[in-house]
Computed example of a mutant assay.
Amino acid sequence: MKKSKKGTIAVLATGELGFLITGVRSAILSALDKALEPLGISAAQFVVFRSIADGRGSTIGELCRVLGYDSGAMTRLLDRIEKKDLIRRVANPQDRRSFLIELTERSALLVPQARRRVQKVFAQLLNGFDEKEAAALKTSLEQILLNAARIA
């Protein structure tokens, strides 16, 4: 009896896709943490800064959606950042029960330095890719996001 060779889609569908994505995510966060360490911030903290600076998140709820954190984990992360005087919580004029998260002057100066370090890491992660391969990677990841949104 001839043994059939599984195709790539069949192999990825066994859960290998999840293991690969989790491994890539962990490797990226580790590389970013290492690059950002001299600035005294972590990759997760940088994502908070960037989200605030780019206007993608100014409340705990918005930041939870961006980072995929629950509110308890986000509160603990924000507490650590606030202790470093890198964010401040101010009363939300539209909702007295919530706060807006703002960058401090110190973190506003840190964001451009951190962005340069992060861009360097991502450029290094794309070493060995040509334009066509990078475009295919981008398209593939966007398709996975679309498919996941349809399932959720």
Rank of each mutant, 00 (worst) to 15 (best):
A148L: 13
A135W: 12
A35Q: 12
A152K: 10
Q45M: 15
L36F: 03
T14I: 03
N147S: 02
A53C: 04
I21V: 09
R88N: 12
I87Q: 06
L32Y: 05
D70W: 05
A134S: 13
S71P: 01
G55Y: 03
S30Y: 06
V118D: 02
I101W: 04
M74N: 00
A134C: 10
T104V: 01
G128P: 00
K34T: 13
M1F: 03
R88W: 07
D85K: 15
E131A: 12
S71Y: 05
K5M: 14
R50A: 14
E131Q: 10
V11C: 11
A114T: 06
G72A: 12
T139H: 07
Q143R: 11
L141S: 13
I87P: 06
L125V: 04
F99T: 04
G18H: 02
G128M: 05
G72N: 12
V47K: 00
R96M: 12
T22Y: 00
A114N: 00
S51F: 01
A10P: 05
A35L: 08
I144R: 04
A44R: 12
R76Q: 11
F46P: 02
V11K: 10
S4V: 14
Q45L: 04
L126P: 02
I52N: 00
L146R: 14
R65K: 11
A152M: 04
E16P: 07
R50M: 10
I52E: 05
V111R: 03
K83D: 06
P38Y: 13
E133G: 03
A148T: 05
F49M: 03
R50F: 14
R106C: 07
L100N: 03
R106G: 02
F19P: 01
S4E: 15
E16F: 13
L29F: 13
F99E: 05
A44M: 14
A123C: 11
V24A: 09
S4H: 13
Y69E: 04
D85L: 14
P112I: 08
S42L: 12
T22F: 02
S51K: 00
L12W: 03
F129G: 08
E62P: 05
R150F: 01
V48N: 01
I21S: 01
A13Q: 14
D54E: 15
E37S: 14
N127Q: 15
T14M: 10
T75Y: 09
E37I: 02
I52Y: 02
D54F: 03
L39S: 08
K3M: 10
K34Q: 10
V111P: 00
L110Y: 01
L20N: 10
G7W: 05
K2C: 04
V90R: 07
E131L: 07
Q94H: 08
L110C: 08
K83I: 03
K5A: 14
K83V: 00
V11T: 15
A134I: 11
I60A: 06
R117F: 02
A136Q: 13
